[in-house]
Amino acid sequence: MISFCQPTKVGTEAKYIQQALESVKLSGDGAFSKKCERWFEDSLGCDKALLTPSCTQALEMAALLINLQPGDEVIMPSFTFVSTANAFVLRGAKVVFVDIRPDTLNIDECKVEAAINSRTKAIVAVHYAGVSCEMDMLREVADRNSIYLIEDAAQAIGSRYIQRPLGTFGHIGCYSFHDTKNITSGGEGGLLILNDVSLAERAEIIREKGTNRSQFTRGEVGKYTWVDLGSSYLPSELQAAYLWAQLQEASYICATRKAIWLRYDEAFRPYKDKWQVLLPEIPAHCEHNAHIYHFRFRDQELRDRFIAHLLQQGITAVFHYVPLHSSVAGKKFGVFHDQDNFTTKASQTLVRLPLFFNMTYDEVSQVVSTIMSFFEEHS
Rank of each mutant, 00 (worst) to 15 (best):
E41T: 14
A31C: 09
C46T: 11
L105D: 05
T80L: 01
E37I: 01
I107V: 15
D42C: 13
R38I: 12
L59A: 12
S83T: 10
K48Q: 04
R91M: 12
V82P: 05
I107Q: 12
R38P: 06
M61E: 12
I66D: 08
T56V: 08
T56F: 08
R101P: 03
G30R: 04
L64F: 11
E73M: 14
V98L: 04
N67V: 07
D99I: 12
D99V: 10
Q57V: 14
F79Q: 00
G30H: 06
V96H: 05
D29K: 13
M61Y: 11
L51Y: 06
D108H: 00
Q69A: 12
E22T: 06
T80P: 00
S78H: 04
L68T: 14
K25W: 13
A31K: 14
G45E: 04
S43T: 11
K94R: 13
V82F: 13
V98P: 04
L26R: 11
C110N: 12
S78F: 02
V98I: 08
K94D: 03
P77V: 10
K25I: 15
M76H: 13
L59Y: 08
S54N: 05
L59P: 06
I66P: 09
W39D: 07
P70R: 07
W39F: 15
A63Y: 14
C36I: 00
T104N: 03
F97G: 01
V96Q: 04
L65R: 10
A63R: 11
E109Q: 09
E37D: 01
E113T: 01
C36Q: 05
A31M: 11
P70I: 09
C110L: 12
E37K: 03
T104L: 04
L65S: 11
R91I: 07
R101I: 07
F79G: 00
R101D: 10
V89T: 10
